[in-house]
């Protein structure tokens, strides 16, 4: 038994479709070949993933959802925004928000702030610790 034949027959081996002779040969090969053993394990895992997905139960309210959707469509109540336009509108909204943020952030505020700063505060040198008396009215 070589790796090529072993991997080719793995499906049939897992499904139990092989003759006893071939089955024994594959089992003997899997004991000595780590490459084929890894392939075998992954194939088993793939089968388990598919089996697990297959066993998932559908939401019991699906029929109600479908009937409600049909009712909505037939009563002429269409969605306010067609599905095709939704991504476009979301993108435009995000772009507008960013644009407004940038605009608002760049509005100069310093002049207004400077006008209202008291003279005492304007005298403070940020690079030095000033005496607290400077701010005192006494």
């Amino acid at each position: 038994m070589n790796c090529q034949l072993c991997k080719k027959e793995l499906d049939s081996y897992i499904e139990g479709k092989l003759s006893d002779d071939l089955k024994n040969q594959i089992e003997a090969h899997l004991l000595i070949c780590s490459d084929c053993k890894d392939a075998y394990r992954l194939q088993i895992l793939a089968d388990r993933v598919m089996a697990a997905e297959k066993e998932l139960e559908v939401n019991p309210f699906l029929a109600t959802r479908v009937m409600a959707e049909i009712e909505t469509r037939e009563s002429g109540t269409v969605r306010s925004i067609p599905n095709v336009l939704r991504p476009v509108l979301i993108t435009i909204s995000m772009g507008t928000a960013v644009f407004l943020g940038v605009i608002m952030g760049s509005i100069p505020q310093y002049k207004k702030i400077r006008e209202t700063i008291p003279v005492e505060l304007a005298l403070i040198d940020d690079t030095r610790i000033e005496s607290i008396d400077l701010l005192s009215n006494e």
Binding site: L56, E57, M67
Partner: peptide, 29 residues
């Protein structure tokens, strides 16, 4: 309203097929 019987009869079948393609419960539903 009879369409509800159709949905109830085939919902598991359709869901399972969709699941096989998209591998996500919400998307499949």
């Amino acid at each position: 309203e009879k369409f509800r019987f159709i949905v109830e009869k085939y919902q598991q079948m359709v869901f399972r097929t969709c699941m096989g393609f998209v591998h996500d419960r919400d998307d499949a539903e």
